[in-house]
Amino acid sequence: MGNESLVLNKKSWDEVAPRFFGRNPLPEYGPLAPREEDLNLLGNVAGMKVLDIGCGSGHSLQYMDSRGATELWGVDLSKTQIETAKELLMGSKAPVHLFESPMEENPGLPLAYFDIVYSIYALGWTTDLHQTITNIHDYLKPGGIFVFSWEHPLHSRASLVGEELHFNKSYHEEGAYEHEAWHAPAIMQQYKVSTYINTLIECGFEIMKVVEDVSLTKEDRERHANRWYSYEKAKMMPTTLIIKSRKKG
């Protein structure tokens, strides 16, 4: 199933990439979620070597460049996204290294090299969470930081009907699923919050912070207004899960 999903997802992302140009990059962690200036999970990135897992159009790497990171590395499954990111990052002050590759594989990234690895709304696309987290652990220096965000596992399990939340699927059910808000055939993975946390621990990470807050300012409401991530639903449950962890050592 893993390889089939990768082929399907690569085709889907190559087709829809323009729709996601610059969508929710750092300093944003997700729709109606707190931003980096609120959370300060990355700290001072000046002088840091950073790696973006699922780098998309490159806007989060552009943000890292603006904050003084010394090396910009990115991995993305989509050829279209990598080409877009290369174009966007042509004027970067820091050197850029981009790889068209699934996150489950190492396309030639150096080991024990990076100060920070992060992934913004991409980790749920992995077909093998344990392998992906193992790879990230291998890429980081001892003491290095890994920060990721993804749609909160509860969010797609419940629908807002009037003023009530109606659960349409069991929270305990994990594995591959087709996301109803995705307009092209694609397979994502559903995991519980505990699965993300326990996988990080099993792979040698220390959990530093777990964030399930929402940000419901007028600006957030206007920027993220759509049928899937609504202000009304976000008042009742988080849209986004954000976890900061550290490689032991």
Rank of each mutant, 00 (worst) to 15 (best):
H155R: 10
A158Y: 09
D115T: 04
R19P: 02
S5D: 15
M64A: 03
A33Y: 07
A184N: 11
T127G: 11
E173L: 14
H152R: 06
E83L: 09
I53A: 13
R23A: 14
L42F: 12
H166C: 06
H97R: 14
E178N: 11
Y177L: 10
P110D: 01
Y191H: 15
S149I: 09
E151V: 14
L32W: 01
V193M: 11
A234F: 02
Y191V: 01
Y231G: 00
G143W: 00
F205N: 05
H152I: 02
I145Q: 09
G68K: 00
G143Y: 01
P238N: 04
Y121H: 15
Y29V: 07
L140Y: 00
Y121I: 15
P18C: 07
Y139P: 02
H97W: 04
P102N: 07
F114P: 06
K79V: 13
E37M: 09
A225E: 13
G74F: 01
F148N: 06
V50Q: 00
G74N: 04
K93M: 05
A181G: 05
M236R: 12
D65F: 02
S92M: 05
V50N: 00
V211K: 07
M188T: 15
A122W: 13
A184K: 14
L129I: 12
I133P: 09
G2L: 02
G162D: 03
T240H: 02
P153R: 00
K244M: 05
R223Y: 08
S159K: 15
A94S: 04
F148T: 11
G91K: 04
L8W: 05
G2I: 02
D76T: 09
A186N: 10
G144L: 02
H224N: 14
E178A: 14
S101F: 09
K233F: 00
E164Y: 10
Y118W: 13
M237H: 00
G22L: 08
E163N: 14
I145V: 15
S245M: 08
L41F: 13
I136R: 05
H137A: 11
T126R: 06
R35P: 01
G204M: 05
L241A: 07
A181L: 08
D213C: 05
M237Q: 07
I136L: 06
T239H: 01
K10I: 11
F21Q: 09
E219M: 08
Y229A: 03
K10C: 12
P34K: 03
A85Q: 03
A69R: 02
S78C: 11
G108K: 03
E28S: 14
R35Q: 13
Y231L: 05
K11Y: 10
L154A: 11
P153I: 00
G22N: 11
G74Y: 00
A85G: 11
E37L: 09
H224C: 12
L39K: 04
L42Q: 03
N3Y: 11
V7T: 13
A94R: 00
D38F: 10
I116P: 03
G22D: 07
G22Q: 06
K141I: 03
I197F: 08
G74S: 07
F205A: 04
G47P: 01
E222D: 13
L39I: 08
V193R: 06
L109V: 10
G249F: 04
N106T: 06
L61Y: 08
E4Q: 12
L165T: 00
I133A: 04
R223S: 13
I116C: 03
Y63P: 04
G249H: 02
L129Y: 10
R221H: 13
N3S: 13
